[in-house]
Design a protein around this nucleic acid. Sequence first.
RNA 1: GGCGCUAUCGUCUAGGGGUUAGGACGUGAGAUUCUCAAUCUUAAAACACGGGUUCGAUUCCCGUUAGCGCUACCA
Length: 491
Amino acid sequence: MPEEIRSQNTTPRVRFAPSPTGYLHVGGARTALFNWLFARHTGGTFILRIEDTDFERSSEEMVEGILEGMRWLGLTWDEGPFFQSQRLDLYKATATKILASGQAYPCFCTREELEQRRKEAAEAGRPLMYDRRCRRIPKPEAEARLAKGEPAAIRFAVPEEGSTRFDDAVFGPVEFANAEIEDFVLLRSDGIPTYHLSVVADDIDMRLTHIIRGADHISNTPKQVLQYRALGADLPVFAHVPLILGPDKTRLSKRHGATSVMAYKQMGIVPEAFRNFLSLLGWTPGAIKDENGKDREIFSSEELVKLFTLDWISKSNAVFDNDKLAWFNAEYIRALPVEELSRSLQPFFDEAGLNVSPEKLLAVTPLIRERIKFLRDAVAAADFFFVEELAAYDAADLIPQKGDAALARKILEHARELLATVAFDHVSLEQALREAAVSLGIKTGPMFQPIRVAVCGRKNAPPLFETMAVLGRETCLARIRKAEASLESLG
RNA sequence: GGCGCUAUCGUCUAGGGGUUAGGACGUGAGAUUCUCAAUCUUAAAACACGGGUUCGAUUCCCGUUAGCGCUACCA
């Protein structure tokens, strides 16, 4: 408690500490987002720290990928990135300090011995934990062996009695019997720290006040609390956030499809939408009503920052729902100014190999914005605007429901003649074609279908007149002529 | 197995001792309409189970069950 009060009286310092053994995934992104929101809300400092002490599995590409993901999401950090691989001296010094205090000891057991004992324990009885045998080695003997250069890890000497507890800002009081806590390794025999040591050393050194991280770390926390005490350091506030699960309620992983943040960028998720969606996974601003008295869900990042507090973080895990994300994204797409949306769309067309001028895309954008959930959908929705030659389509689609080829021919011929002279703007086109429908005695539905298919090459397309206006007279006439020809072949 | 955490519609969630348990996504139906969307209206859909406490529990307590997490000289 006194620790918490101290923490709350200084400006908060929080961190996101990914390990570059993989890309930035959805769960990590949400943890980063919560830290970022908390820092921005409180006027605190957001630190980025790369936990790359596992040299085997860490890579520079992954570091770059993580930074890229953070930038894309707009999660700007105030300090760092710091790399644990460059701070090994600190960890060694910290381990030495704990050792000197008598709360750690050298362990000469080899990896093989430990594995063997664990195996035996599993087969026979229960205690899978380290049996603490090196803790019983008399100090002079241990020092002699060390002096001889015998390799040793440094283990923390966990009290045999009592319990270790902490107050989690999300989960409340959590308590572990010390007897359940293993004498964990602080420093490996090669001098590289384990996670348990490096987090604590860094969190203390970086003067972190709040540790906001995934709930999978709850079980690790007592080990860290023990170290804080051994080092005489104040405890930060721990806030564990529930995990994000896949649709089958197991931890979100690759086999659930896209889990990398950059994959969502490539799908055409708008970063603001992603932030909004992610923020509401395991957190709620409470019941904030919209003008209709319904609970709001769309929040700008500024609002999120204003609203965010640790108190509203949920305790139960949340399933990642792609449909809901798609809905958020569609909402953001429709809310974006056309110019901005158009600019965001451009790279997707470029990537698809279509020759798309910004001017034309700007004209097309309002016609498709309500028809796409992901930015990438725009390519499939609007490709016919940009190709010289329409992709092959079924000539039968030209024939309206309850009509025949002759009717389709009649409509197209009539339209072709009309379009040769009419002014090619939305209003004129609509007026002329509606009048044509009346004079031919055909309802608008069947009347417009052959034209739409002829011009767009598909049955489902943006509104006809706007579309034709963008396409222009020459293209429309050519495509109608082509449609008439394909109708001939149909007989 | 041990330890820890969690439990409201299919999903995200609001609520909290007395409510017609609210909203959103998705789903169904309808309206609108040149198709598709978008939009609007509407419907179905939940307090895991069992004991307590209480005049009264979805809400508080205990247990059961289920799920998840941790259980490395990984992080």
